[in-house]
Design a protein around this nucleic acid. Structure first.
Lengths: 137, 137
DNA sequence: TTGTCTGCAAAACATTTGCACCTAT
DNA sequence: ATAGGTGCAAATGTTTTGCAGACAA
């Protein structure tokens, strides 16, 4: 499936996007699958993954680093901030300051309890800005 | 392995922590394994995972949501901020404002190019603050 | 008709776990 | 001696992919 191929109209893809648009959740592929399986009993999880990927490619949805996916480790245990490279997945420290008030606002706005005031942002790392480098980590 | 068991001295665990402490990278388990396999040819990847987990449990390292792990989706494609629940993995919107200057500072401090000014933070969601709820999503 | 989309099953990864043996205490 | 640590392989969980048939243009 090339990054910008000709698309046909697909009812599943349409419904997947509708589902995403119609919820405040930030669902996983699995959740989308469970919902839509009611409508389309034959639905395949592969189809959900494929279409989510396409929707992101087309800019109609975004994928979020979150959930339980934590596959990087750091021996610096003081709260500090990170940037992740969207291309190669590298994680680097971001030595910037964020005020305590900011996290208070976050707590107020979300109802979450932020015990570890640490921010992540993503972007393109210096290496990947020159597309030279392959994709190792 | 209970959350706070009695630990013995383990040379592998010690070396894993040293490796983490001695690098500015934020390595994956795989990377740690590759490095240490030179020293301990018989080393098992399972041992690396086990010890990373223990180090995090003991507060000697932290695990970072980053890398290529993106398993949640959102049809709201305008940059906005998120909180992730450390316990159940739920992701929610965080309607707070972050200045453009902040991201400029981030870019300056890291060399990354932040094309999508969006922040993630993690904490405990309201449901999980009352430990009642099980661990569904 | 043609190329895309889909279901299915297998494959590819990443991470965890059971088990028997090894080692620190 | 005893509980924790380790290697190994199998199990789990998640996401991707190859393929043959279905469908949209």
């Amino acid at each position: 499936m090339s990054p910008s191929a000709n698309r046909k109209h697909s009812i599943r893809r349409e419904r997947i996007l509708e589902l995403l648009s119609g919820t405040k959740r930030h669902p996983t592929a699995e959740w989308v699958y469970e919902q839509l399986k009611r409508e389309y009993p034959g639905l395949s999880l592969g189809t959900v993954y494929r279409n989510l990927r396409i929707l992101v490619e087309e800019g109609l949805a975004q994928s979020i680093r979150g959930g339980k996916a934590t596959d990087h480790f750091d021996a610096d245990i003081a709260p500090h901030h990170h940037v992740t490279c969207d291309r190669c997945g590298k994680v680097s420290d971001a030595p910037v300051k964020v005020t305590e008030e900011f996290f208070k606002k976050m707590e107020k706005a979300t109802g979450y309890r932020i015990s570890f005031p640490q921010i992540s942002v993503s972007g393109l790392c210096p290496d990947c800005q020159n597309q030279k480098s392959p994709l190792p980590e």
